[in-house]
């Protein structure tokens, strides 16, 4: 009889030995547990998320309840921002990343979605270094790549160092008008080794979703089942630059647009990798663009070091496959663990 695989529900065995009837130790969504108080639970550490007012730029699109001098200051900031935009007085890096626009507009729009709609719990943010290059590798799901945007928000607004995640995107993204130019402005660049290595060498935090379209466009019945992890290009990029790989597991994104069917002929017609049918799309038209309010968990795992390898090891396919599998397994196990802790996809 083949041995059944044991999936650990908790990263600390023995402490919660009641595996038969799993005791839910859900991270409380509202009460943020400080790091010290979690008595060494590396898996389920909830890093306190600073209030948006402290971390975020001082003016917000939805900011209302502030005192008068604050209101005036916000107006001054808003006007200064508009002046910078009108006179072109802002910086853009060689990848087309526009931090001014990202912080003041994009993050301000995404924050309510992150905070109120998906109620994201970012776990293990301390595993992401405060400075220097690192490669965040995450699972991909949700029909539209909202998970990438939420990971960006988590790292920019909830990470103590407020890091910008430089995501790597498929080439299709850049050939779509509007989406392509906007993606570059929020820091996305083409998923290819030269770009990834250039960013990592410059000490940037790079995000990659190696499943690509296979992951984001998979049917709902295959939710939380990791697809093939690309060809391991991300591992060789990390090895060549010697940066740590941070496995990132995202739970909740699968439920935002449950894809019940894929209209292949229409996809071919529009030149898309898939044409989704969700409960709301295309039946209810634009209403289908509203994501379902699932409860999200984004967990950043223990970094996997690659600086022990020689740069030449990046050309050893077996080693690259092994590390790829290690990263994939880590993410899959974390997904199972987070799922077993979750009672309901929408309440959490």
């Amino acid at each position: 009889m083949p041995q059944a695989r044991v999936i650990p529900l908790y990263s600390d065995h023995g402490k919660h030995g009641d595996h038969g009837k799993a005791v839910m130790r859900r991270p409380e969504p509202r009460v943020r547990v400080p790091v010290e108080a979690t008595d060494g639970l590396p898996g389920a550490r909830v890093v306190p998320c600073p209030a948006p007012a402290e971390e975020a730029p001082r003016w917000e699109l939805d900011g209302g309840q502030v005192n008068r001098s604050g209101w005036e200051e916000q107006l001054a900031d808003l006007l200064a921002f508009l002046r910078r935009r009108l006179t072109g007085d802002y910086g853009v890096d060689e990848f087309g990343f526009d931090p001014d626009l990202t912080d003041h507009v994009v993050m301000a729009i995404l924050w309510p979605l992150y905070e109120r709609w998906f109620r994201v719990d970012a776990i293990g943010l301390s595993n992401v270094p405060d400075s220097g290059g690192a490669l965040v590798v995450a699972n991909h799901s949700g029909t539209l790549p909202i998970d990438g945007l939420m990971t960006m928000v988590a790292l920019r607004r909830c990470h103590p160092a407020g890091r910008h995640l430089r995501a790597l995107g498929a080439d299709l993204v850049f050939s779509i008008p509007m989406i392509g130019s906007m993606s570059r402005k929020v820091g996305v660049t083409l998923a290819c080794n030269p770009d990834a290595e250039r960013l990592l060498n410059a000490g940037e935090l790079v995000g990659v979703w190696p499943e690509g379209f296979k992951g984001v466009g998979k049917p709902f019945r295959e939710r939380y089942k990791l697809q093939r992890f690309g060809r391991g290009g991300f591992v060789s990029a990390a090895m060549r630059t010697g940066v740590p790989i941070i496995p990132c597991s995202i739970v909740g994104a699968e439920e935002i647009y449950p894809m019940i069917a894929d209209l292949k002929p229409l996809a071919r017609l529009f030149g898309l990798p898939y044409f989704p049918v969700t409960p709301l799309f295309p039946l209810f038209g634009l209403l289908g663009a509203v994501p379902l309010p699932s409860k999200w968990y984004i967990e950043f795992g223990e970094p996997i070091r690659t600086d022990r390898y020689e740069p030449a090891d990046a050309d050893d396919p077996m080693l690259v496959f092994n590390v790829t599998d290690q990263v994939r397994e880590t993410i899959q196990q974390t997904l199972y663990r987070l799922l077993s802790l979750r009672r309901n996809a929408f309440i959490g």
Partner: peptide, 8 residues
């Protein structure tokens, strides 16, 4: 759109 961001 399929090119890397920076050419060497």
């Amino acid at each position: 759109p399929r090119d890397p961001a920076v050419f060497t």
